[in-house]
Design a protein around this nucleic acid. Structure first.
Lengths: 341, 341
DNA sequence: TTGTAAGCGTTATCAT
DNA sequence: ATGATAACGCTTACAA
C-alpha cells in the first residue's frame, strides 16, 4: 500500500503538505501542489479511508436500518426498494457511503450497535412501528446523541427527524375519487395502526366519507398485513358482504391486487362489478389486470430527503426543517372506473 | 467515548489485557477476565470498529457493487432485491457489514475505488456484462489482488469467482414444457447476449427444439431489455406473425407480462390462444393474470453463496470451489397451459 | 498469565 | 507556505 509518507519523500515535502493537497486546505504554492500530485500519481497513492475515518473520528458512512420481517424477503418490496434508491442517490452526492444493517429479532431493541461501534455517523431507520418498545429505543438513541431520521413514520409527541408523505390527503383523494365514480359503500382494507400512515389513511377515509354525507360503517373496515395473501383473504369477507359493498380502498397495491384476485375467482371483476384502488403506485399496479388505480407516494424522494436531513444534522450540507411531508398523487387506471362490458 | 484505556484503569490491568478479553485471545485468569468485563460494563465500553479496522488493516465490510442503469430505479427489480437479501443474511452470520456502492456512468471503469480507499475487504459485483471494457476492469481488479465475486454472470476463459444458476437447463425445461403442451412454433424473447445467462438460455432453447425435431426459426428470436415495455413491443411483432407462433418463452417475467398485455389488447389471452412462460419466478408472476409460468432462479441463495465464496477468499470461513452453479426450477401456472374456455 | 510498547496512516495544532 | 509532531484507539509482537 502506498502511503502519504512515500509521496512526501518523493515530492520532497512533509507529510502534512501531502495531506493539505489532498484535502484542499490552506494556502499553497501551486508548484508544491503540482509536485505532490505528480508524486502521488507516479506512486499510485490513494488516501486510506479507514485511516481518515480514524483520525477524523467520522466514518463517512450513513447507516440504513431495515426492520426484521419474518418470512419476507425484505427488499422484494417496492416500498423499501424505492426508498433505498433515493438514499443511495443523495448519499453519493454528499460523498458518503451506505452501510446496510438488517435487523434480527434480537437486536430489535438494540438500534445502537452501529453507532457505538462508530461504523456510522447517522442512520436512516426504515419500517419502524409506533410500539412502546420502539419509542423507547428511539428515545434512547436521541438521548445518547445518535442522529437518525425516520421515513414514512411519525411519532406524535416526540421530536425526531421524519420524512413522511401526506397520507391523509392521499387517502382522502382516493376515497373521494371512488365516491365521485358513484360508489357509496366503500370498504377500507387498512394496515396496522402501529404505522402512522395507517392512522393517516383512516383520517382521510373518514373525512371523504363524512364530507359526502356517507356513514362510516365499521363492518367495512378490514385490516391486512400488506401481503397479497391478506388481500386475497379480505376478498372472502367482502364477498360475504356483496350487495353491501361496491368499492374497496386498500392501503397498498399488493393487498389491492389480492382483493382483485380473490373477487375475480368469484366472478367479480374490478372495474366492472366493483371498484378498487390501492396505494404506492408500485410496478405491480401497472402489471395487474385490470391496471390498478393507486396513490403514488414519492418513496424515492423521501429517501433522498431523509438522507439530506440526517446528514445536515451531522454537519454535512445545509440544515433543514426536522419534519418533512411530501405530497402524494392520485393515479387513476381501470380498476376504479366501472364500465359497461 | 469510553476507550480501552479507561477500562484498563478501572480494572487495574493493562490495555492489552482488555483487548485480549474482547478478542478472546490467549490464556487468561478467569478472575481477570471477570474484572475487565465488569469494568467495561460499568463504563459502557464498546470497542471502536474504526480503530479496529485501522489496526487490523481490514475494514470488516463487504462491498456490493450495483450497476448503473439509467432511468431504472435500481432496487425496484426482483432480481437485485433477492440477491441483496441473500448477501445480507450471509454477511451478518459472518460478522461483516455491507457497504453499498451504486455505480455512476463515470466510475463504470473504476471498480477499484472502494478497494483502494480500503473501505471494503472484498466485493460482490452485480449486473456486470461481458463487454471488453468490463472484462478489462475485472482483470485489473484481479491483477491488483482485489477479491470479488460475480453473481449470475460468467466470463468464459477467465478464472473469476462466480455464482451462477443453470440457465441452460432452466431454459431447456421451459421450452420442453411448452413443447409437451403441444406447442410447435415457439418464440424466444431473449435478453442481451452480453449476459451469459442469455447465451445459456439460447443453448437450452436450441437443445429442446432440436431434441423435439423442431426447426430453429430465426424469425422467432426476439431481443428485449428486460423491461415490461420491451415485452409489450415484442407483442406487436408476435401479432404480426400470428398463425406462425403459438407460444413465447421470455427471458424474464416482466417481459413475459408485457407480452401478455400486448397480446391481450389484441384479443389473445395467455393460456388460451397462446402459451407464455417467463423467467425468475418473481412476485409479478403470481400477481399477473393469468398467473405466469416461470423458471425459478434461486437469487437469494446465489447472494448467500457469493458472500460465502468471496469472504472465504479473504480468509473468513472455509474456502470453496471458485465457480458455483445452482439449479433452477420450473413453475407451471396457467399462462402456459392452453385450456378451452 | 500479564505488561510494555511499537506500529497503523491519517488529521490537526503549533511552530517556523 | 510549510514542517514537526502529538494525538487517535486499537492490535500484536515481545518481554517479563
Amino acid at each position: 500500500m502506498v502511503t502519504r509518507k512515500e509521496v512526501a519523500e518523493l515530492a520532497n515535502v512533509s507529510e502534512a503538505t501531502v495531506s493539505r493537497v489532498f484535502n484542499g486546505l490552506g494556502p499553497m504554492k501551486p508548484a508544491t501542489k503540482e509536485r505532490v500530485l505528480e508524486a502521488a500519481n507516479a506512486l499510485g497513492y490513494h488516501p486510506n479511508a479507514i485511516a481518515q475515518s480514524f483520525a477524523r473520528r467520522r466514518s463517512g458512512n450513513l447507516g440504513v436500518v431495515l426492520p426484521y420481517m419474518p418470512k419476507v424477503h425484505l427488499f422484494s418490496t417496492y416500498y423499501f426498494s424505492e426508498i433505498l434508491s433515493g438514499i443511495g442517490e443523495q448519499v453519493r452526492e454528499m460523498g458518503y457511503d451506505l452501510l446496510l444493517s438488517l435487523l434480527t429479532p434480537d437486536d430489535e431493541l438494540d438500534y445502537g450497535r452501529l453507532y457505538r461501534s462508530q461504523k456510522v455517523d447517522a442512520c436512516i431507520i426504515l419500517g419502524s412501528m409506533d410500539t412502546p418498545s420502539q419509542r423507547q429505543s428511539l428515545l434512547h438513541l436521541q438521548e445518547n446523541g445518535h442522529p437518525f431520521c425516520l421515513v414514512n413514520q411519525r411519532f406524535e409527541g416526540l421530536d425526531f427527524l421524519e420524512v413522511d408523505a401526506d397520507h391523509v390527503e392521499g387517502s382522502y383523494q382516493a376515497v373521494r375519487h371512488l365516491i365521485d365514480e358513484g360508489n357509496r359503500q366503500i370498504a377500507f382494507l387498512n394496515g396496522s395502526p402501529q404505522y402512522s400512515n395507517s392512522r393517516d389513511r383512516w383520517l382521510g377515509y373518514q373525512r371523504a366519507m363524512l364530507e359526502a354525507g356517507l356513514p362510516i360503517n365499521s363492518e367495512l373496515l378490514l385490516e391486512g398485513n400488506y401481503s397479497r395473501k391478506s388481500g386475497y383473504e379480505a376478498a372472502a369477507k367482502l364477498w360475504e358482504m356483496r350487495g353491501r359493498v361496491d368499492a374497496v380502498f386498500a392501503a397498498n397495491d399488493r393487498m389491492a391486487i389480492g382483493v382483485m384476485q380473490g373477487l375475480r375467482e368469484r366472478g367479480w371483476m374490478a372495474g366492472r362489478e366493483f371498484a378498487v384502488i390501492g396505494c404506492d403506485d408500485s410496478d405491480a399496479a401497472k402489471l395487474s389486470d385490470p391496471p390498478l388505480s393507486s396513490i403514488a407516494v414519492p418513496f424515492f424522494e423521501m429517501g433522498k430527503g431523509a438522507s439530506r436531513l440526517v446528514l445536515a444534522s451531522v454537519g454535512q450540507g445545509v440544515s433543514e426543517e426536522g419534519q418533512v411531508q411530501l405530497s402524494t398523487q392520485l393515479r387513476i387506471r381501470q380498476s376504479s372506473i366501472k364500465r359497461q362490458y
